[in-house]
Design a protein around this nucleic acid. Structure first.
Lengths: 343, 343
DNA sequence: AACCTGAACTGAAGCGCTTTAGTTCCTCAT
DNA sequence: ATGAGGAACTAAAGCGCTTCAGTTCAGGTT
């Protein structure tokens, strides 16, 4: 005998019907704002339902409507990387504030790689647990997209829109990177390096291309562009290498805050003054950037709003709309202490 | 006409029944390992189901079993605080690895306070969206517990067990704090301060009590014990105050890694050498502790395992067991660069 | 008075599964 | 030959809701 009896008598729509002296159909009409009942009975039924504290059984409604009223978010990263990235939690918080408005729940799954991610997609869809999905961390050749398309799964991409593909919510990474380069060049820097994130991620490629273009526009050649895995260790190693070169950069842009922090740390160890001898720009903003000394100049954006817009797009898609892609605000450069005129 | 037709013909148990030439009841028996079918037909049915790629419709099964096969995690914190704390993502990742084994999904909700948290509990339970809950960030007088108890909601507490209450997964915060104090005293420190977290949180109180007890055991009186809200700003402010005192501490323990980082930063600004003049211990370990200079001595534990154990306890509870509370491994002190013999 | 209309409501099917109460049929003891 | 017993299966109810096809009835037309 379980400590919890699952079969407790639950309040159902027919209890309300009995109490109101009408059929369950009438109750359903009343509760869902459909025609078929007079305004007076509707009010009576609503009052009774509220008084009795009735709430629809999600499984029953889902079964009947062929809809789960739930969306899924699958994050394909190792738990270690996730931990330090404030991005996800903020994004999730934003999504939920929006989803709450339509009584849509959020199913979450954290898996280490794309293969598992596809398994999770299959499971959820086959079991009808979700009505649609949010896809993050897009790769340029993303194995998940064909799966989603072939199965006809409604999804919203967090990243650049695909031609003819599903709706995407994105922001102009290229413009942000360009702003950072312009800012550094404006400070007199000529020898600038870029420490990029995972090369498989599409936005890494976009940013790298934008970096090259922006440098070229100023008639400059990058000192280096190095791909990494976003970790602190990688940021430290690359910074060490860059500073050990014959003509080291006077400025480095990092693709996230964690690596930028590592860069500051390594520079200090090597006795390279930040920002006197080396300027540093972080590609993501978070409390972390204000936690280090010197505080980090960073590309900042409203991640929570990003989550809100993504959720809104998915909800609209599920409601039968055909939302276009949504361009979120471009990250702006927030100048702090880690940048200064070139030596 | 929606871009996605929800009414696409889905594979159901009766398709399999038709194909196997048996009744749907027989199929259900076969798929769920129940008696009522011969071994040969069971195998035949399983083969057909696998071949056709059948998966049970979660809503249908849930409706029939009066069970959602989903558990809920409600996090009651502001998105800002959440972001920097690597704890949650790791914990979630751990939970999921365990939940995946029993095909249980995780519903997540991030709300700013306990009031909203209770609303979310009510909603989920009334709608039968979850079978049980994980309760984190326990307060000593936690308004959620009476709600859970009165509604008979299966729940596992992440924190100290309540006498006669629901099962809890916890670790010995007192022992960990004691180890930190012993360590510092062993290094010759006599003037030790504690920068605590949110005073409403139960484990803050447990740690503070343990801190006092450990100090007393060494015949010492704390320089100060200050409550905070875990933020970087609070950590910085308190450190500044402590170091400005007539007889400043030679060692400070902080209740999380973020504040400890702030402490290091402030000390440097004030020209106080870490660890030469001031030793610092962080109450939580994460990559952050290895990202600052000097790297932080910290109380470290396996957060992912913590999540695994919590999920396992809840699953056992839902399966009708009556799991006792589970004591997770005690955090161990990882000595790094931020601690040294007292000046 | 006969007819039509539309609003207000009921009855019942159906969503996909589990589970209980039968039914059929084979085997074995008598 | 008869029946008891059990294994292997089927039929159908039920989970709680939505929805569609009817039914009833007041009111208006002609």
């Amino acid at each position: 005998m379980s400590a919890y009896d699952r079969r407790v008598k639950r309040l159902t729509i027919s209890d309300i019907a009995k109490r109101a002296g009408v059929s369950i159909g009438a109750v359903s009409f009343a509760l869902n704002g459909r025609p078929g009942v007079s305004e007076s009975t509707r009010q009576r039924i609503l009052a009774i339902a509220a008084e009795m504290g009735w709430r629809p059984n999600a499984a029953a409604r889902g079964l009947s409507e062929s809809r789960a009223n739930t969306v899924g978010l699958i994050i394909a990263r190792s738990a270690d990387t996730l931990g330090v990235e404030p991005f996800f939690m903020k994004f999730i918080a934003g999504m939920e504030s929006e989803l709450a408005l339509t009584r849509t729940a959020l199913l979450l799954q954290v898996v280490p790689d794309h293969l598992r991610s596809i398994e999770a997609i299959n499971d959820w869809w086959a079991e009808r647990r979700v009505d649609g999905l949010i896809v993050m961390d897009l790769w340029s050749q993303d194995a998940r997209l064909p799966v989603l398309e072939s199965m006809g799964i409604p999804a919203v991409l967090v990243g650049r829109p695909r031609p003819g593909g599903m709706p995407a919510v994105w922001n102009d990474d290229a413009a942000a990177v360009t702003e950072a380069v312009d800012f550094l060049v404006g400070l007199g820097h000529r020898r600038i390096a870029r420490v990029a994130g995972l090369p498989a991620l599409e936005h890494t490629q976009v940013r790298t291309a934008a970096f090259h273009a922006a440098m070229a526009r100023h008639g400059l050649a990058p000192v280096a562009v190095v791909d990494t895995d976003y970790t602190w260790a990688a940021g430290a190693r690359v910074t060490r290498d860059l500073l050990a070169a014959a003509t080291p950069p006077t400025a480095i842009t990092f693709d996230n805050d964690v690596m930028a922090t590592a860069g500051v740390s390594v520079a200090r160890q090597l006795g390279v003054g930040v920002p006197q001898e080396l300027s540093i720009v972080a590609g993501d903003d978070s409390q972390l950037c204000e936690m280090v000394f010197p505080t980090l100049t960073a590309l900042s954006r409203d991640v929570q709003a990003y989550g809100v817009h993504t959720a809104r797009t998915l909800v609209s898609l599920l409601d039968g709309g055909s939302p276009g892609s949504f361009q979120d605000a471009t990250a702006r450069l927030v100048a702090r202490e880690s940048t200064a005129p070139a030596p």
